[in-house]
């Protein structure tokens, strides 16, 4: 109990700085997610009806995810230097797969009868895509975005190890001062605010998902 009040005092005292790192963290995640979403949806549309390309691209984007984050971050350092760029590049690659996969699944799940009737009404294939297929697949795509966002928030805490910023700095700060006063408070601040950020972004995306989904499809 004392520990908890202690922690709240710590957070209260350092709130400005914690908030700053939270915002840094969120910025990394949001930029990555925005780019990954655009790329994945475009790519998803391109490969959905091409079985070979589809299998290959999905497999590759999945393989990227199996490479440990520290290794992937490190592999980009010789290319883009240290700091946020290698971390963001790696996070971007990680974030592709869930959105890509859900885009393809979402487009798959659009009833052929609906597309057929759109075609029958004389919609061009671009119109079919923009006015029928993507809107219908949207909830599933957004579900993928939410998965990517949660995952990216968690992994971005490691960016600090390659010189990036974000809430990982509180975890590292606690580790380097391990045993000293407030070191545990610092770690907990890093962890708790990371998870909170994950939840807040998830809720924000959920709200965005709701309002960007055609009315008839909302749950």
């Amino acid at each position: 109990m004392e520990n908890i009040t202690n922690w709240f005092t710590y957070v209260n005292d350092n709130f400005e700085y914690i908030l700053e790192e939270t915002i840094n963290h969120a910025r990394i995640v949001l930029i990555v997610i925005a780019l990954a979403t655009v790329t994945s949806v475009l790519l998803g549309v391109l490969i959905q009806r091409r079985p070979v390309a589809r299998a290959v691209v999905l497999a590759l984007s999945g393989i990227v995810l199996t490479i440990p984050s520290l290794a992937l971050f490190a592999l980009f350092i010789p290319v883009v230097g240290i700091g946020n760029p290698p971390a963001m590049l790696a996070l971007y690659l990680y974030a592709l797969m869930p959105v890509l996969r859900n885009t393809v699944t979402g487009l798959d799940s659009v009833s052929p009868a609906v597309v057929e009737s759109a075609k029958g009404m004389g919609m061009s294939s671009t119109q079919q895509l923009l006015r029928v297929r993507l809107p219908l697949a949207w909830p599933v795509i957004m579900a993928g975005v939410r998965i990517s966002s949660l995952m990216t928030v968690g992994i971005a805490a490691i960016a600090i190890l390659v010189g990036g910023d974000g809430l990982g700095s509180y975890i590292q700060g606690g580790l380097t001062r391990f045993g000293l006063p407030n070191s545990e408070n610092s770690v907990w601040a890093g962890v708790v605010f990371t998870v909170l950020l994950g939840l807040v972004l998830d809720i924000a995306f959920a709200i965005f998902q709701r309002f960007s989904t055609p009315r008839g499809l909302r749950a």
Partner: peptide
Amino acid sequence: QALPAYGLLVI
């Protein structure tokens, strides 16, 4: 999923 592995280790 948003739990930072790094933080969990240090905890």
